[in-house]
C-alpha cells in the first residue's frame, strides 16, 4: 500500500516535470531563431546580432516579455511584424547580398524605444556588384548640422504650392534644379528668386513651396506622414511643436547649452525654424541624429527616398504642399 502511494506520487511529479521537456522536444524547430523583445530598460532584443548566409532563409520566432513591440527590417519594404506579450509571431527573411542589415522596433515602447535596434550579419558571396553609395548632400556641402539656422524673412501668409502652379508658365528655371533646391533653405531660395523676379513677397513664397513640392516622388506625402507618425511624433508631437509625450518634461532647446542636457526638439510650427533649414540640412539631421537633443540616428533605418519624403513632409508644417499623382 505505502509503496503504491510512493509510486503514485513519484509518477505524478515525473509526469508534470516531463510536460515541459517533452513539449519542448515536440514543439522545437531546430532551424528557428527565438527572438524575445523587451523594453530597452529590460534588455531590449534578446539577440543584438543574428547571423545568416546569403540566400538561406532565416526563420524568426518572436515574442514580447512586456509590452507591444514590432519587428521591422531597416531600408526595406517588408511590412513590420507585430509582437505581443506572451504571443508568438513568426517571419522568414532571405537576403541575396552579404552585409549587415539593421532590424528595429517600430512600436514606441517607452522613451528609449529607438534603442531597440539589432544587426543581421549575412555572409557569403556577393551575387552582383553593389551600387556604389553616394555620400549624402550634407556631407558634400560640409554643412554644420548643429549651427543655429533661424530664418529672418518670414512670409505673412502660409505659402501654397497650388497658387504658384496656377502660373506654371511664369515659373523660373531655378525652381526645377534639384540640387539648387536641396542645398538652399527656403529663405535663401526666396531671396534668390526675389532678386530675379518682379513679384510680390507672397507670390515668391508660393513659388518656393511649389519648387519644394516638385522634389517629391509620387506618393511622397503619404509616405512622409506615415514615417513621421510612426517614428517622429512621439517626440516632435502631432502638431510639430516638439512637445511630444516622450519629451514634454524636458527643457526647451537652447543652442548655447547644446549637448549639456537632453532637450525638447525645435518647434516646427515656428516659421523661423524650418524656413531657415535647407532640405540637405534636415536630411543630415535625420541621418545623423544628435543635435544635443538626444534624437536618434535614422541613416541606417530609412532609405534615402524615405528620408527625402520625410524632409518634404516636415515643410508641410509651414507650407501647403500637395500630394503628387
Amino acid at each position: 500500500m505505502e509503496k503504491l502511494a510512493k509510486i503514485l506520487v513519484v509518477v505524478l511529479i515525473l509526469l508534470v516535470a516531463a510536460v515541459p521537456l517533452l513539449g519542448q522536444q515536440i514543439i522545437a524547430q531546430p532551424e528557428t531563431i527565438e527572438l524575445r523583445a523587451r523594453m530597452p530598460e529590460n534588455g531590449g532584443w534578446s539577440q543584438e546580432f543574428i547571423y545568416g548566409l546569403v540566400n538561406v532563409p532565416i526563420k524568426l520566432r518572436m515574442t514580447s516579455d512586456d509590452v507591444v513591440h514590432s519587428f521591422a527590417l531597416a531600408q526595406s519594404s517588408l511590412p513590420s511584424v507585430e509582437i505581443f506579450p506572451g504571443k508568438f509571431s513568426e517571419t522568414e527573411l532571405v537576403f541575396d547580398q552579404p552585409g549587415e542589415y539593421t532590424f528595429y522596433c517600430t512600436r514606441w515602447c517607452g522613451a528609449n524605444h529607438w534603442r531597440m535596434r539589432g544587426t543581421i550579419v549575412i555572409e557569403g558571396p556577393a551575387s552582383s556588384d553593389q551600387p556604389t553609395s553616394v555620400p549624402p548632400l550634407f556631407l558634400q556641402l560640409g554643412l554644420d548640422l548643429d549651427a543655429p539656422h533661424f530664418a529672418r524673412v518670414i512670409p505673412s501668409n502660409r505659402p501654397e504650392s497650388a497658387r504658384a502652379s496656377e502660373r506654371t508658365n511664369a515659373l523660373p528655371d531655378g525652381l526645377t534644379d534639384g540640387e539648387n533646391i536641396w542645398s538652399k533653405s527656403p529663405e535663401a531660395l526666396w531671396k534668390d528668386l526675389k532678386a530675379d523676379e518682379d513679384l510680390d513677397d507672397q507670390s515668391v513664397w508660393d513659388m518656393v513651396a511649389w519648387g519644394l513640392n516638385q522634389q517629391g516622388s509620387s506618393g511622397w506625402m503619404g509616405q512622409g506622414r506615415e514615417l513621421y507618425t510612426q517614428n517622429c511624433l512621439a517626440c516632435h508631437s502631432e502638431s510639430g511643436r516638439g512637445d511630444g509625450v516622450m519629451v514634454r518634461d524636458l527643457p526647451p532647446m537652447n543652442h548655447d547649452k547644446m549637448g549639456s542636457e537632453a532637450t525638447r526638439p525645435p518647434d516646427f510650427s515656428d516659421p523661423a525654424v524650418l524656413l531657415g533649414a535647407s532640405p540637405a540640412l534636415l536630411e543630415g539631421k535625420i541621418i545623423r541624429g544628435g543635435m544635443g537633443t538626444g534624437m536618434p540616428y535614422w541613416g541606417n533605418i530609412f532609405t534615402s527616398e524615405q528620408i527625402r519624403s520625410l524632409v518634404l513632409y516636415l515643410y508641410s508644417f509651414q507650407m501647403e504642399l500637395e500630394e503628387r499623382p
Partner: peptide
Amino acid sequence: VNPGDQVTIDLVATDVV
C-alpha cells in the same frame, strides 16, 4: 457624464502602446 451626453474621449498613450 449624464445620460444622453455625446461623449468624445481622446486617448493619448505617453509611454507604451
